[in-house]
């Protein structure tokens, strides 16, 4: 048996071309047109959308907000998911029950979760009206301030996605051979030392995988923003994907929306490539070299 023939790749490639490369090429084309989504396919009308893109204050703000959200998501989610994942890989009492509970948010649809949090954060009738004052929010007006709304989006995203990353880390942690820990305890290393010297280095590839998913996920994050804040107050949570939606499907300016979309594709691809390259993930070195 030799290598499988090239023909085996055809279905996958076709699928990818039809549903990923094709639409992407169309979007790039549309970004050079002015089209309201109606009637004949538009002809190229120049680089107007791209010129507008570079001096649109809303776009600049959206890029900044996307960066903030991405950074916040990574900083909040990674440590929590990592610790929870490592913990749930163990053999403690009640672990299975608690893990199942932690896992629940991932099972609900993100629309349902966003609606749920929107009710909880309602300044007049939500839970926050009662407990807001404990945190110095006298009028429970979290979603009404730019920073508060952004914090709420980051929090809901974390609440929703930490279980998934926990699962990744759990799997990763279970792969680490027990003998490492046995050897370490013979040498007198405590739990903390074991975590930093064995668990963390062994999870390197898992961290990269989880981070790439997190970053790309945060860059293309959309549904929670749509429901929780509608990009507001004003434009204070209008991240790039939301701006793209609003331009395309509220204002029906498909040309400009396509330019925004193209930027998003390029940036998200570049960042994930960069992360893979910098972290050495691409060379696929095993974490268990020399065993």
């Amino acid at each position: 048996m030799g290598r499988p023939g090239i023909a085996w790749a055809v279905p996958g490639v076709l699928f990818f071309v039809l549903f990923a490369v094709g639409p992407m090429a169309l979007v790039v084309y549309l970004s050079f047109t002015s089209w309201d989504g109606l009637g004949a396919f538009p002809s190229v009308s120049g680089t107007g959308n791209w010129e507008r893109l570079f001096d649109d204050p809303t776009m600049r703000q959206a890029v900044w907000l996307s960066i903030v959200l991405t950074a916040a998501s990574w900083l909040i989610q990674t440590p929590i998911a990592l610790l929870l994942g490592v913990w749930s890989a163990g053999r403690q009492k009640n672990r299975a029950v608690l893990s199942a509970i932690f896992f629940l948010p991932l099972l609900a649809s993100s629309v349902a979760l966003a609606l749920l949090w929107k009710s909880l954060l309602d300044p007049n009738f939500g839970l926050i009206a009662e407990i807001g004052p404990w945190f110095g929010l006298e009028d429970g007006n979290l979603l009404g301030s730019g920073r508060g709304a952004m914090a709420a989006v980051a929090f809901v995203a974390a609440w929703q996605f930490i279980p998934f990353h926990t699962l990744l880390y759990q799997g990763g942690a279970r792969q680490i051979p027990k003998s490492f820990y046995e050897a370490a305890s013979i040498d007198g290393a405590g739990t903390v030392r074991q975590f930093f010297s064995i668990t963390l280095p062994q999870l390197r590839n898992t961290i990269v995988t989880s981070s790439v998913l997190m970053v790309v996920g945060a860059l293309t994050f959309f549904d929670t923003v749509l429901i929780l804040t509608e990009g507001g107050p004003g434009t204070d949570t209008t991240i790039v994907p939301y701006l793209m939606y609003e331009t395309g499907f509220q204002a029906y300016d498909m040309g400009y929306a396509s330019a925004v979309a193209t930027v998003l594709v390029v940036v998200a691809t570049a960042i994930s490539l960069l992360m893979v390259r910098v972290s050495g993930f691409s060379s696929m070195r095993s974490t268990r070299e020399g065993m």
């Binding site: 929107k118 300044p123 007049n124």
Partner: peptide, 22 residues
């Protein structure tokens, strides 16, 4: 008022405030 920025209509926020005499 103060927190109108996070009051909604579609989930009946404003209408309920009004009906409840707030």
């Amino acid at each position: 008022g103060k927190n109108y920025k996070s009051v909604n209509y579609t989930a009946d926020g404003a209408s309920t405030l009004f009906a409840k005499g707030k």
